[in-house]
């Protein structure tokens, strides 16, 4: 494992911890999209089908369990926790899941490295992860006021994606036959979706002002 991959995993982990911290300690999920969180739960559930059958390393298995556990517990908090669920911006968070899920599933059935159940679902999880942030970005546009923790959560997610691209570049030059077009293109698209958000994030940070997106 190289330093970029590790930094990517750690920023990913930090993003989830920041979100759980916000929900668990402040008992609020204001500004957080349940649609995005449910999509992430589906992403991890379909990607880690190999968790008990293919052992890669203790690190991998541990991280998979953390991402599965955290994504499902965030969904549980937002849907079922008696205090947290009251702060959910239900009327603003109207993005339809199936607009993203159905095209990703169809695309994964056409474009994949091998037409098997697990491989198609694994590819589906990559495509879905690429667009899963969209409901969250739409919600941010609508509410406009972004609290620090929500801003940091999205910033850390974007950083995770950026580190993964450096990881792929590194692996391409250091490992023989390391060419994987599907995750690369899906990952690149995903990172580009954060571009706009990054621009405003750094702008507000530089001017020491509260993060606000344009209407």
């Amino acid at each position: 494992m190289n330093i970029f991959r590790f930094a990517g995993d750690m920023t990913h982990l930090a993003s989830v911890l920041v979100l759980l911290l916000k929900i668990h300690t402040i008992k609020s999920c204001a500004g957080v999209s349940l649609k995005t969180q449910e999509l992430y739960a589906i992403v991890f559930a379909t990607r880690y089908l190999d968790i008990f059958t293919d052992f890669i390393s203790l690190y991998n298995t541990f991280m998979k369990l953390v991402f599965l556990g955290s994504s499902f517990s965030i969904v549980w908090y937002m849907r079922s926790h008696k205090i947290v669920r009251r702060s959910y911006d239900k009327d603003q968070d109207t993005f339809r899941h199936y607009f993203l899920i159905v095209p990703c599933l169809l695309l994964a059935m056409i474009i994949n490295e091998k037409f098997t159940f697990r491989e198609v679902l694994w590819t589906f999880s990559l495509f879905l992860e690429a667009v899963a942030i969209l409901p969250q970005l739409v919600l941010l546009q609508r509410t406009r006021n972004i609290d620090n923790l929500t801003g940091q959560y999205i910033f850390l997610l974007g950083a995770y994606r950026a580190f993964y691209i450096f990881n792929w570049i590194y692996r391409y030059f250091t490992e023989p036959h390391y060419v994987h077009w599907i995750p690369w293109i899906a990952g690149l698209l995903q990172t580009l979706l954060y571009g706009d958000f990054f621009y405003y994030y750094f702008h507000s940070w530089k001017n020491n002002k509260k993060l606000q997106l344009p209407a």
Partner: peptide, 10 residues
């Protein structure tokens, strides 16, 4: 079967 190398990523 052999795991594709990218399946070792999260």
């Amino acid at each position: 079967r052999e795991q594709p190398q990218n399946h070792d990523e999260l």
